[in-house]
Design a protein around this nucleic acid. Structure first.
Lengths: 70, 70
DNA sequence: ACATAATGTAAAAAATATTTTACACTGTAA
DNA sequence: TTACAGTGTAAAATATTTTTTACATTATGT
């Protein structure tokens, strides 16, 4: 990563299924909609940092394990 | 942190001054406005995850060192 | 005291994230 | 085959983030 990063990646699906959670489960636990989880999981847009923290918290890890940058 | 986290904190000013950068410097390097850096630094709102990553990158550390949650 | 750099702030507009409602598709269990 | 859970997606509305312009305040150097 030599330049200013600009592309997000994520391992939500991997971590989520490891905990046997559906998109809907994760949505409810993070207080957002299933569509939002789906969109973030499929990289439709960059979530707010707060939501990213919540997702990492529910997935029992930290942001850098859930999201990456390129 | 026993509950779903909901309050952000940050060490932007500390890390920024350690690198001798002004708000404007950091803004330019992260491709955002000085007002945005100022607002985030003063916790006015939760930035996008992408901007958070960029800030951490310019501050030569990772998100968890720059931002915290309560 | 003066000039200037850095920061704080505000309001309106623009861009982006998120919700809501709704429906289609896939796989799987009965 | 039917029913249902899980996922993908779309469009409109709403909420939030970010930009832009502009000005006030604070600190610092001369």
């Amino acid at each position: 990563m030599t330049k200013l990063p600009s592309n997000l990646t994520n391992s939500i699906k991997l971590l989520r299924t490891k905990l046997d959670l559906t998109q809907d489960d994760l949505a409810k636990k993070t207080n957002c909609s299933r569509q939002t989880i789906n969109a973030i999981e499929k990289n439709k847009y960059s979530p707010s940092l707060l939501l990213a923290f919540k997702i990492a918290y529910i997935l029992e890890t930290n942001i850098d394990e859930v999201f990456g940058i390129e």
